Lab assay of single mutants.
Amino acid sequence: MAAGGDHGSPDSYRSPLASRYASPEMCFVFSDRYKFRTWRQLWLWLAEAEQTLGLPITDEQIQEMKSNLENIDFKMAAEEEKRLRHDVMAHVHTFGHCCPKAAGIIHLGATSCYVGDNTDLIILRNALDLLLPKLARVISRLADFAKERASLPTLGFTHFQPAQLTTVGKRCCLWIQDLCMDLQNLKRVRDDLRFRGVKGTTGTQASFLQLFEGDDHKVEQLDKMVTEKAGFKRAFIITGQTYTRKVDIEVLSVLASLGASVHKICTDIRLLANLKEMEEPFEKQQIGSSAMPYKRNPMRSERCCSLARHLMTLVMDPLQTASVQWFERTLDDSANRRICLAEAFLTADTILNTLQNISEGLVVYPKVIERRIRQELPFMATENIIMAMVKAGGSRQDCHEKIRVLSQQAASVVKQEGGDNDLIERIQVDAYFSPIHSQLDHLLDPSSFTGRASQQVQRFLEEEVYPLLKPYESVMKVKAELCL
């Protein structure tokens, strides 16, 4: 049975990233139509530049190519590739079939990587351009969430054990800070992308030097003109047959890092959902379990974690691919890159769409948070109580021993009897502590235990987050809708 299948058929496997999760716009960027249309555009740009620099290419040939950029006979191309065992030459023939007058000058002087690699770089750039505003929107939604809850005390956790208090907004800023680093890295790697350009079979530009009869300047002009037509500021000066596969490492490393950030955020949300302090959106008709109707599973956060793990592992592909590119190139890269580049971007696209949807509907339960604080705060307040007693004339050592005994009794009630923490009640009825009984409410005010959390939130948002989001103001209103 021949390899390949009808990918629109229910009898043929289709990647869930495309069929179930990723956005239509990201799927289109990695589609065959987008790819092969870009090949034709690159052939047109090459012909236009070659004509401008004096090669015998007519206006009629150029116009014929322009008129057929979208006229792609995919069936013919597939048949040609089956016959020739070469995808680029299959599309040269297919393009030439609908451009008979231009057929002889299509791909003039070029090698397969002229269309293959340059198209990949265009796709990487455009895919990054799709991700950047999506990530900015996630940051914006979380920034709104953090600002609104900047002063809401909550129990902090280290080692997932109760620690000092923080605020809900401050905790959210930990998430935002990681995503801001990801946004900066995505922008950097996007701006650092260079075009492969017009380089020939081993990167020496020998074929173009021959076409222009040894004119170095025209060869350099050709490279520059096509690079500018493709919208790049610069091209690699040095290439082998391909652009260095280190570029793929750079791009997928940034995406993998984004995956790590999203995994951490969504894990926190899942843990908070278990504590009943916070939940992701839950639709009115949504079913959490087929057997347990009360369940409210954090399905979206779980999906993000599941896909983020996949995204983090994909960076190993370009690392290994770059390491086995012998001399000017081997074909070890080809099949692998067809999979890992598309999957990385479709996965990143999915987790950003999902995280935006989550961040637009996060639900906080202040009463649950308050109750958990009441359970733990008495123990945390013991040092403040000791200091207040010393100020009232008591002995630190005597007070410490009193607190120690009462704390152990209260802990026994919590752990052995399943009761509430009654340390404060014990202190309130103990005559030894009568000098500070009137101060206990103040000493137990949760806001006095959150330090500068709310001020940190305000400063972080104003100095770091809002300036970073400013270039994306025009796209901030787009909502994230999930079908599944």
Rank of each mutant, 00 (worst) to 15 (best):
R14T: 13
S31I: 14
R33D: 12
K35I: 03
K35N: 11
Q41N: 07
L44K: 06
T52H: 10
L53D: 06
L55S: 06
P56Q: 12
L69K: 08
D73P: 11
M76F: 00
M76H: 06
R83Q: 08
D87A: 11
M89S: 09
M89E: 10
H97W: 05
G104L: 06
A110C: 04
L121K: 02
I123D: 13
I123S: 05
R125M: 11
D129E: 00
L130D: 03
A136K: 11
S140K: 15
A143T: 05
A146N: 13
R149A: 01
R149D: 08
F160I: 07
F160G: 02
P162Q: 09
V168I: 06
R171V: 07
M181C: 06
L186N: 13
L186C: 04
K199Q: 10
G203H: 00
Q210R: 02
V219A: 09
Q221P: 00
K229R: 06
A235W: 07
A235G: 05
I237R: 10
I238R: 08
I238F: 06
T242Q: 01
R245F: 00
S257G: 05
L258V: 15
S261E: 01
V262H: 05
V262I: 04
R270M: 04
L271P: 04
N274G: 08
M278Y: 08
F282A: 14
S289Q: 15
R296K: 15
N297T: 13
E302K: 07
L314V: 04
A322V: 05
F327M: 09
T330K: 03
T350G: 11
L352P: 08
G361A: 14
V363S: 07
V364E: 11
P366G: 13
K367C: 10
M380C: 12
N384G: 10
M387G: 13
V390K: 14
K391V: 15
A392E: 15
Q397Y: 14
H400L: 06
H400C: 02
I403N: 13
R404F: 11
R404P: 03
L406C: 12
A410E: 02
A411V: 14
E417M: 11
E417P: 15
D422S: 00
F433R: 11
H437M: 04
S438W: 06
H442F: 14
R452L: 06
Q455I: 00
V465N: 12
P471Q: 12
P471R: 11
K479V: 00
L484R: 13
